[in-house]
């Protein structure tokens, strides 16, 4: 349950950026969330709602885009990992290469990136 502290950092970054643009309101925030992170979407959204209160972020929408976890292997394989047999609906990082069964490396899926935000700014 470290979504709250991660979200505190996100909010800090968003407020800083909004200030730079002299924004009067934030309408929407787009976040890329890697499938291999241990951050839950529901908890992030809940933390966002609480932490954005009484700031110019209040009432804005947090849109989370899930980034698929991909792996690569020395055998040349590059792509998504094999689905987990015991829990096909859960995202489990399995670093066994689906092609050669050797050890693979993660190339995406560990990010938690503020992509962009839609701001209301003075038209000067």
């Amino acid at each position: 349950m470290h979504e709250f502290s991660v979200m505190s950092q996100i909010i800090e970054g968003l407020l800083e950026e909004s200030k730079k643009w002299s924004a009067v309101k934030v309408e929407e925030v787009f976040l890329d969330l890697g499938d291999f992170t241990m951050l839950g979407e529901e908890q992030l959204k809940f933390s966002y709602e609480i932490l954005s209160k009484d700031t110019i972020l209040q009432g804005s929408t947090l849109t989370i885009n899930h980034v698929k976890g991909t792996i690569e292997c020395d055998c040349g394989f590059k792509g998504e990992m094999s689905p987990s047999e015991d829990s096909p609906h859960r995202i489990v990082p399995i670093l066994e290469c689906p092609k050669c069964r050797g050890p693979a490396r993660i190339i995406s899926g560990r990010e938690c990136t503020i992509k962009n935000l839609r701001l209301v700014v003075p038209d000067v």
Partner: peptide, 17 residues
């Protein structure tokens, strides 16, 4: 008058750690 702009940030929160 105000306008709506889209601002790119590309800030990875976990990357800082």
């Amino acid at each position: 008058m105000h306008k709506v702009v889209t601002v790119d940030m590309e800030k990875d929160i976990l990357a800082e750690n």
